[in-house]
Amino acid sequence: MIPAQGGLINSALLYRIGFLTRNALVTLGSIVWLLLNTAEELADNIRRGRLPFRLSALFTQADRTAVGSVPLVLMVSFFLGLTMALLTGYQLEKFGVERLIPSLIAIAFTRELGPLITGIVLAARIGAAFTAELGTMQVAEEVEAIEAMGIGPLRFLVAPRLVAIVGAMPCLSVCAVIAALIGACLISWVTLNIVPAFFFDAVLSSLLVNDIVIGFFKAAFFGLVIGLIACFKGLTVQGGAEGVGRATTGSVVVAITSVIGFDSLFNIIVTQYTK
C-alpha cells in the first residue's frame, strides 16, 4: 500500500505543478496579447491620422509616475547608498582598499541597484495604483463602456500608463544613482576620510558607457514589465471590491518578483555573453 500512497502523492504533486505551470503560461500569453493588442489599437489610430493617445493623459500619468515618485526613490536610494558604503567600507578598510568604495557604489548602482530599487519602488507605488484604478473601472463597467463607445480601451487606458512608466523608469533610475552616490559620498567622508572631490573623480573614471547603457535598458524594460503586469491585473479583476484588493496585492507581488527574476536572468546572460 505504501508505494501506492507514494504514487498518489506524486501524481497529486505532478498535477499541481502542471496546473501552476499551465496557469503561468496562460497569464504570460495574455500579457503578451495585451501588449500586442495595445500596439494594434495605437497603430489603428495612427493609420486614421490621429494621435495614438491623448497627450493630456500621458502628461497626467507621467507626472504621477515620474515626478510623484522622485522623493521616495531619492530617499530609499540615498539611505541604501549610505548603508552600502558604510558596511563595505569597514570590510574593505581591513585590506586597505577602502578607496574602491566610489567605483563599487557607482557601478553597482548604475548597472544593478538603481534600476532594481526604482523598479521595486514603482511596482509598489505605481503598479498598485494602476491595478486599483483599472480594477475599479472594470468592476464599475467603465472599461466596457469605453469599449462600447468604439474607443479602444487599451489605447485609451493602457498605452498612456505604459509609455509613462517606461519613460519614467530610466529617469528615476538616474535619480536613484545620484542619490545613492551622495549618500555614499557623505558617509565615506565622515567615516573613512574620503573627500568628495576624490570620491566623484573615482566615480567618473570607473564608470563605462556600457554600464550606463545597461542601466538604462534594464530600467526601461522593468518599467514595461511592471506596467504590463499592473494593467493586466487591473483589467482582469473579477469579484467586486475584494477582487480589486486581491488583484492589487497580486500585481505588486508578481511585478516585484518578475523584476528581480528578469534582473537575475539578464545578469546571467550578460555575464556569460561578455565573459
Binding site: 475599479t136 464599475a140 463597467e141 467603465e142 463602456a145 469605453i146 462600447a148
Partner: peptide, 10 residues
C-alpha cells in the same frame, strides 16, 4: 449604450 449603473468615467 446606457448601462444599468450608468458607467460614467468616475
Amino acid at each position: 449604450m446606457v448601462y444599468q449603473y450608468s458607467a460614467l468615467i468616475s
